[in-house]
Design a protein around this nucleic acid. Structure first.
Lengths: 229, 229
DNA sequence: ACCTGAACACCGTTCAAGT
DNA sequence: ACCTGAACACCGTTCAAGT
């Protein structure tokens, strides 16, 4: 098999230069930075992280291979922008889940977990850029870290709500949030990386229900409390 | 910055052709396949997944860039071999942890979790190849899947032992194992990807203890049972 | 049967030059 | 101020040819 699939190689300007449009494609793109991010997101979404090259994004935006360097220091910077967009999208999905959930604290907590796993399954390539080491120097991109922290905050707040209602035991809320995050993140990772195929043929939905139950109840042998969501 | 660091470019055979050795480097390597895997593992360990290129592995093994194709269909096949080695090493580490643990089922279960997180922290690059999508076609490499299943098996067995002792509640053992795996895997992933920096300045060790406790107890508000490891 | 050398189509990144 | 073209040192992969 040839390594690259004959790359279509759009004749430059063929799409940008409409017949009716008097001016041909301008020398200055005008809005290249957001255009490159859009192109990068689409590459990641449709063809995976490995298809995201600086040159491919430039081609998609209709500029030369060197043009991105006016707007991004290097490939890492573009990847960081993609990751940041991902965190904002995930935060939005989680907020939406909260908006449609009722007021019961445990229901809201559960809704966040479902939204997290749902986002991961809907956007597996993007979540690999958000987490993982595709972005080599995470600390070089503070706005990315802020976006990540904001989604973690949602989890912490939901757990605090459950604690106030006496539904989750007292204790360091952030520490409990790390446990919840680990569980939900680990499950998402195992699912999208196809790792759970080694486990009989249970459905992902059933396994997800088990995750939620075990996170709440733990594995220890004790009398079960009243029913929970 | 230049993208590649001047690549040392070992003069071919300089290391292979020892002065005392009468025969110069033979045309046939003789044992190329294992040599390539060794080279690949060292590249991953010392310089990360991105440094693992087929050409670099070939250079390290002292053969031409095309030689690996006699032994591996493509780069994916070499990556799969690296991932498989990783699972075998992790399984060995977990078995060793069991060997030095005492007979208490809960202690043994806990030891497995510590070994898992410990392996991930000691070999972050390798675990990214084992999980994750570096290996594009996991199902094309059945021995890799077998190696992964074997480590999962260890977890299932430990949980079954706890169930028999009445220390972990009854129920589908594999399902409970997926929860434990998710928790431990998620925590490992968040740690090695530097994601827990957004959580105050708790030590990883403290967070790990919290993970273990919350996995066993769950988050729900209930009277605590007798002390556990 | 196993390996090499040369080739091809890709990369990321730099830099002088264009508008 | 923003973009292009050409260049350089890398890739993965193929293929005819060597031993």
């Amino acid at each position: 098999m040839p390594p690259y699939t004959l790359g279509v190689r759009t004749p430059r300007g063929s799409a940008a230069r409409k017949p009716g449009r008097a001016k041909s494609r301008p020398y200055h793109h005008g809005n290249l930075r957001p255009a490159l991010i859009r192109a990068a997101l689409e590459l990641v979404r449709t063809r995976g992280v490995t298809a995201l090259t600086l040159r491919a994004a430039a081609r998609k935006a209709g500029v030369s291979q060197a043009a991105p360097y006016r707007h991004f220091a290097d490939k890492d910077a573009l990847l960081a922008a993609v990751a940041e967009e991902g965190f904002r999208a995930m935060e939005a999905a989680m907020r939406e889940a909260l908006a449609t959930a009722d007021d019961a604290p445990l229901v809201r907590f559960h809704a966040l977990g479902r939204a997290y796993v749902g986002f991961a399954r809907a956007h597996p390539s993007q979540i690999r850029v958000m987490f993982g080491r595709e972005v080599a120097n995470r600390s070089a991109h503070p706005t990315l870290q802020d976006a990540a922290a904001a989604t973690f905050r949602l989890l912490v707040d939901a757990i605090a709500g459950c604690q106030r209602a006496g539904l989750i035991r007292a204790g360091d809320t952030e520490e409990l949030a790390v446990s919840a995050w680990s569980m939900v993140h680990g499950f998402s990772a195992l699912v999208i990386d196809g790792q759970l195929d080694v486990v009989g043929d249970r459905s992902i939905t059933d396994l997800a229900a088990g995750i939620a139950r075990d996170l709440y109840l733990g594995l220890g042998e004790r009398p079960l409390p009243e029913p929970h969501p």
